[in-house]
C-alpha cells in the first residue's frame, strides 16, 4: 500500500509542520515507512507552500507525490492548483474559511472543515494546521490517535502542547461528525 498525501497553503500556516507530524506518527510511532518532502518559495511568510507525505508499508523509492490520494487545501490558491490532481475518488479536506470557491464535477469526496474559525475560538489561528490534522485523523483512520498526539507534542514548543492537543481534539471531533453525515 502506497498512500500519497499533499497539504498545501501559504507560508506561515504550519503546512510543513503538519506534514511532519503526520509522517512522524506513521513511521516513528506507527509501523509504516514515511517520507516528507516540501516545496516553497524564497518567502518565509505568505508565499505558496506545499508539504508532501508518502506513507507505505514497503520501502519508499520515489519520495514525491504524483497523484495524491488525499489533499489538504488550506488556501484558495492551493485548492485551485491541486484539487484536480487528486486521484479519482480521492479525499479532499479543505479549510472552508480559506477556500470559498469550489470547482464542479470533480469525482472526489470533499470534507469542509472551518479550521481557521475553530482555531480562532482557541484564540490562536496558528493551530489551524493541527485542527486540520485532527479532522484528517478521524476522517482517514490512517494513523493511530495516540501516535499522532505524540508526534504533535514532538513538533511543537513545550508550552504550547496543551493548546495544540485541544486543537487536535476539536478537529478530530469535527471530522468525526462530518464523516457520520456522509454516511
Amino acid at each position: 500500500m502506497r498512500l500519497e498525501i499533499r497539504a498545501a497553503g501559504f507560508g506561515g500556516q504550519g503546512i510543513i509542520r503538519a506534514g511532519l507530524m503526520l509522517a512522524t506518527a506513521a513511521c516513528i510511532y506507527g509501523d509504516k515507512n514515511a517520507v516528507e518532502t516540501q516545496s516553497y518559495g524564497p518567502e518565509s511568510r505568505g508565499g505558496a507552500c506545499k508539504s508532501e507525505v508518502v506513507i507505505s508499508d514497503k520501502e519508499i523509492d520515489f519520495p514525491k507525490v504524483s497523484k495524491p490520494d488525499i489533499l489538504i487545501a488550506m488556501s484558495q490558491e492551493a485548492y485551485n492548483q491541486y484539487a484536480h490532481t487528486l486521484k479519482q475518488g480521492g479525499t479532499l479536506l479543505l479549510d472552508s474559511d480559506m477556500v470559498l470557491k469550489q470547482k464542479k464535477n470533480l469525482d472526489i469526496q470533499v470534507f469542509e472543515i472551518p479550521a481557521t474559525k475553530i482555531a480562532e475560538k482557541l484564540k490562536n489561528t496558528i493551530v489551524a494546521n493541527v485542527v486540520m490534522l485532527g479532522a484528517f485523523t478521524s476522517i482517514t483512520n490512517l494513523v493511530e490517535v495516540e501516535a499522532i498526539k505524540k508526534s504533535i507534542l514532538d513538533n511543537v514548543p513545550k508550552k504550547t502542547g496543551k493548546l495544540n492537543l485541544a486543537a487536535f481534539e476539536k478537529g478530530y471531533d469535527y471530522g468525526k461528525l462530518l464523516k457520520k453525515k456522509k454516511r
Partner: peptide, 9 residues
C-alpha cells in the same frame, strides 16, 4: 535540495 530538505526515518 530534495535529499537535503526531505524528512525520513
Amino acid at each position: 535540495e530534495i535529499v537535503g530538505h526531505m524528512w525520513e526515518r
